[in-house]
Simulated scan of single mutants.
Amino acid sequence: MRRTQSATPPPVIVTGTGRCGSTMVSEMLARHPDVLSVSELFTAVHVPLIPGEISGARFWELLGTLDPGIAELVRHRVDIREVQYPFGRGRFTAETGVPALCLLTLPHLTGDPDALYDELAAEVPGWTPAPAEQQYRRFFAHLAARLGRRVIVERSGGSLRMLGSLLRIFPDARVVHLHRDGPDTALSMSRHPAFALGAQTVELSRRGAGDDLPEDLADFRPGRFTAAALRHEIPLQRYGRLWSVLLLEAERTLAGLPADRLMALSYRDLIADPAGRLAELARFGGFDPDPDWLREAAASVRPGRTGTADALPAPQRRELHRSCLPGQAVLHRLGHVA
C-alpha cells in the first residue's frame, strides 16, 4: 500500500449516539496502516478537562481512572462487549482493578496492552505541566509516533454527549457524524447495559428527585444500583428519548461546524456501500482510500440490521417512534438524513 504525503492532517473525531455502527467504523479504520484508530478512550475517562495546568503525573492518574458509569458496571461485573482486556492472560484482574486505558483502549491498538501500558507509564508522568487539552493532544501524538501512524481518528461510543469537550481538545478536528435511524438505534441500545443506565438517567431527570419512584427507576439512583437493576424491563421509548436527548444536546455544536469540517455518514448508506462511503471518509480525513484497504475493510462488514424496529408490535412501535421525533427533527434541521 502506498503512503500518502507526509504532512499530518487534522485529527478526525467519529461521533454518534452509540449503537450506530461506530465500533465497526473503528475496526475498519484500524486496518489502514496510516491510521491510529483510538477507540473508547473517552468512554473510559470521560474527558476530564481540569482548569489550569496539570502535571504529567496527574494526567497519567486521570488516564487510569474509569468514568463513574463504566466503573459502576465493571464493579458489579456487568458484561460490556467493548471491554477487550485479556482477563486470564493479562496481569490485571477484576479484583485488582484494570486501569481505564487497559480496559477499553489499548487492546484495540495492540495484542499486548500490558506492555504498551508499561511503556506509557514510564513516559507520560514525566511530561512537563500543561493544560489538560494540550496533554491529551500530546498523548495522541505520542501514540501515533510510537505505533507508526500518521492520521489520528478518535472514536468513543455515544460521544455526542461530549462533542463540545472533544473539540476543545482538538479545535481543528474534522468531525464525522455517524447517524442511524432512531427506532433501530433505540432497539439496539436496549440490548446494552451502558445504555440502560443512560436511558434511566434521562427518565429520572424527567421525573425529578422524588422518593415515590417505581422500583425499576429507584434501583438506578446513585448508591442503589446493582447488576440486578438490569433485570427490570425498561420501556423502549426511554431509549428513544435518550437517542433524542443526545442529538438535541449536540445540535448547536454540530450546526456550528463549517461544512469542510463536518461529514454526515449514514449507517444505512455505510452498510449498503461500505467501500464507497469509506473512500469518502478517507478523502475527508486526509488519508489514502487505497483500493486494497477498501476491499478488505468492506469485506469485514456484517449484514446490516436496518428496519429492525418495524417488526415491533404496532402500539410499541408507535410509542418508540414518538419518542424519537425530537431527535429526528434535529437530523432534518442539520440535513443529516439519508
Rank of each mutant, 00 (worst) to 15 (best):
L143H: 13
R138L: 03
T65C: 01
L104F: 15
F140C: 12
I80P: 00
L101T: 15
V98I: 15
G56A: 05
D67E: 04
V124A: 04
H76A: 08
R137S: 07
A144M: 11
R137L: 06
A71R: 11
R75P: 02
T105W: 12
P113E: 14
L62E: 00
P113G: 13
A144V: 15
L143I: 14
T93F: 03
T105E: 10
A121P: 11
T65N: 06
G111I: 14
H142F: 13
G126C: 02
D112E: 11
Q134M: 05
A115E: 13
P113T: 15
F59Y: 02
L62V: 07
G111L: 12
P125D: 11
E53N: 07
H142R: 15
A115W: 07
L73Q: 01
T96G: 13
D79C: 06
W60I: 03
R75W: 01
E72A: 09
R58F: 05
E72F: 00
H76I: 06
L109E: 14
W127L: 11
L104M: 15
D67T: 05
I54H: 01
V98F: 12
E95Y: 08
Y136M: 05
I70V: 01
E123N: 10
G90H: 06
A122S: 14
E119Y: 14
T65I: 03
Q135N: 08
T96I: 05
G90Y: 06
A130C: 03
G64L: 06
T93N: 00
Y136L: 01
L73H: 02
A57T: 07
L63I: 05
E72N: 06
A94Y: 08
D67P: 00
E123H: 15
T65A: 03
R137D: 10
D118C: 02
E123C: 12
E72P: 04
Q134R: 04
P125H: 12
E95N: 08
P113V: 15
H142G: 05
T65M: 08
L120T: 13
T105N: 07
L66D: 10
L116V: 14
F92D: 03
E72W: 02
F87N: 00
G64S: 08
F139N: 13
G88H: 06
E95T: 10
R138S: 09
L63G: 02
P129K: 11
E53H: 00
A132N: 09
L101Q: 13
L109M: 14
P86V: 13
F140G: 12
E133A: 11
T96F: 09
V124D: 01
F139V: 09
Q84V: 02
L62T: 04
R89T: 12
A122T: 10
L62A: 06
A57F: 00
A121H: 11
L101A: 13
A130K: 07
P131K: 01
A144F: 10
T93V: 07
I54G: 00
D112R: 10
R77E: 00
R137N: 07
G126R: 10
L63V: 04
E123I: 09
G69W: 02
G69R: 06
L106R: 12
A115P: 11
